[in-house]
Design a protein around this nucleic acid. Structure first.
Lengths: 97, 97
DNA sequence: CTCGTCACTTTCCATGTCGGAAAGTAGGGC
DNA sequence: GCCCTACTTTCCGACATGGAAAGTGACGAG
């Protein structure tokens, strides 16, 4: 009955995405490459996870041409911050923090 | 090249198992049925998750005949508590708690 | 002794997720 | 035009998951 897991979000919970959100929540924006290196995944894997976060409305992808090169930067949206905060709160509740 | 996630344990991270561990860490022992209801899963699903935790050496399953009925109770092992604690610490690190 | 029940276990199965490899795309630079 | 950077998307095999249903072991009833 108590199957109720109100703020448990599978999009956020998957390890790579949890890490991505954890990185982004601390900053305004971060470059694709920096996130990729911090998380330790390949371009394609990061791209796919970012896409999922983007489709969930949690991450905003910006492509800016800097020094004649397209740089992709990532940022959590307001909804992304809210979802992450709720998820972390839920993790704390579950883990009895 | 895999990212360095020292104490990130997939056996513990899966939602149902994280919940099971969260319940068990707070007590000495809990009945199978109580865990099943608290987590909100079916017998078969709980049985399968418990089996994984057991095979990882994290949970100890005890079957006791009480009032002429076999009752199964679950408890975290020392290793289970350690793994859960490490995982929670890692979650805190990742989520920036 | 046989049957039915309780309390899980295990099997079957259909779906979903994941990551690596490789091919594809877009915008400069030479 | 061709190459390079910086991602994207596709293809694919491996693995995880949950629901349904069949199976198991230990009683207790008849």
């Amino acid at each position: 009955m108590t199957a109720v897991r109100p703020h448990f979000d599978p999009v956020v919970h998957a390890p790579p995405r949890l890490q991505i959100c954890g990185l982004l929540v601390a900053v305004d924006t971060m470059d694709f490459a920096a996130v990729r290196d911090a998380v330790g995944v390949s371009d394609s894997v990061l791209s796919k996870h970012v896409k999922q976060l983007e489709e969930a409305g949690y991450v905003k992808v910006r492509k800016a041409t800097i020094t004649s090169r397209v740089r992709t930067s990532l940022a959590l949206t307001k909804a992304g911050r809210a979802a992450f905060a709720a998820h972390v709160a839920e993790l704390r509740r579950i883990t009895g923090a």
